[in-house]
Lab assay of single mutants.
Amino acid sequence: LDITFHVDGKNIHVHGASEEVVRIIEELIKNNARAEEIKETLERLLR
Rank of each mutant, 00 (worst) to 15 (best):
L1A: 09
L1K: 12
L1S: 11
L1E: 10
D2Y: 10
D2T: 11
D2S: 13
D2V: 11
D2L: 12
D2Q: 11
I3Y: 15
I3W: 15
I3P: 04
I3L: 11
I3H: 14
I3D: 01
I3T: 06
I3A: 04
T4F: 11
T4M: 09
T4L: 08
F5W: 12
F5D: 01
F5Y: 06
F5H: 02
F5S: 01
F5C: 03
H6P: 04
H6I: 15
D8F: 04
D8V: 02
D8N: 09
D8E: 11
G9F: 03
G9C: 03
G9I: 02
G9K: 02
G9R: 01
G9Y: 04
G9W: 04
G9E: 03
K10M: 15
K10C: 11
K10V: 15
K10N: 13
K10I: 15
K10H: 13
N11I: 14
N11W: 14
N11S: 12
I12M: 07
I12V: 07
I12C: 02
I12Q: 02
I12D: 00
I12R: 01
H13P: 04
H13A: 08
H13Y: 12
H13M: 11
H13D: 09
H13V: 13
H13Q: 09
H13R: 10
V14W: 09
V14E: 01
V14P: 01
V14T: 03
V14R: 01
V14D: 00
H15I: 13
H15L: 12
H15Y: 14
G16C: 04
G16M: 06
G16V: 05
G16S: 09
G16H: 08
A17E: 02
A17K: 02
A17Y: 03
A17W: 04
S18F: 05
E19R: 13
E19N: 11
E19I: 13
E19T: 12
E20K: 08
E20W: 10
E20T: 04
E20L: 07
E20Q: 10
E20H: 09
E20P: 03
E20I: 05
V21H: 07
V21Y: 03
V21P: 00
V21K: 01
V21C: 04
V22H: 05
V22E: 02
R23N: 09
R23E: 06
R23M: 10
I24M: 06
I24D: 01
I24R: 05
I25Q: 00
I25C: 03
I25L: 07
I25Y: 02
I25W: 02
E26K: 14
E26Y: 15
E26H: 13
E26I: 14
E26M: 15
E27P: 00
E27R: 11
E27Y: 11
E27T: 11
E27A: 14
L28S: 02
L28P: 00
I29H: 01
I29P: 00
I29W: 03
I29Y: 03
K30R: 13
K30F: 10
K30N: 07
K30H: 10
K30I: 08
N31L: 11
N31Q: 12
N32W: 05
N32K: 11
N32G: 15
N32I: 03
N32H: 12
N32R: 05
N32Y: 07
N32A: 06
N32P: 03
A33N: 04
A33G: 07
A33R: 08
A33T: 10
A33P: 04
A33Y: 09
A33K: 09
R34N: 13
R34P: 13
A35W: 15
A35M: 14
A35P: 12
A35D: 05
A35Q: 06
A35Y: 15
E36I: 05
E36R: 05
E36D: 14
E36N: 08
E37G: 02
E37V: 13
E37F: 12
E37H: 13
E37S: 07
E37Y: 12
I38S: 00
I38T: 01
I38K: 00
I38D: 02
I38Y: 02
I38C: 03
I38P: 00
K39S: 13
K39W: 15
K39A: 12
K39I: 15
K39D: 06
E40Q: 11
E40S: 12
E40R: 10
E40V: 11
E40L: 12
T41W: 09
L42Q: 00
L42E: 00
L42D: 00
L42R: 00
L42F: 02
E43Q: 10
E43W: 07
E43I: 08
E43N: 10
E43F: 09
E43S: 10
E43G: 07
E43L: 11
E43R: 11
E43A: 04
R44G: 06
R44H: 12
R44Y: 13
R44F: 13
L45G: 00
L45V: 05
L45N: 01
L45H: 03
L46D: 03
L46S: 03
L46T: 04
L46M: 12
L46C: 08
L46W: 05
R47Y: 15
R47K: 15
R47M: 15
R47F: 15
R47G: 15
R47S: 15
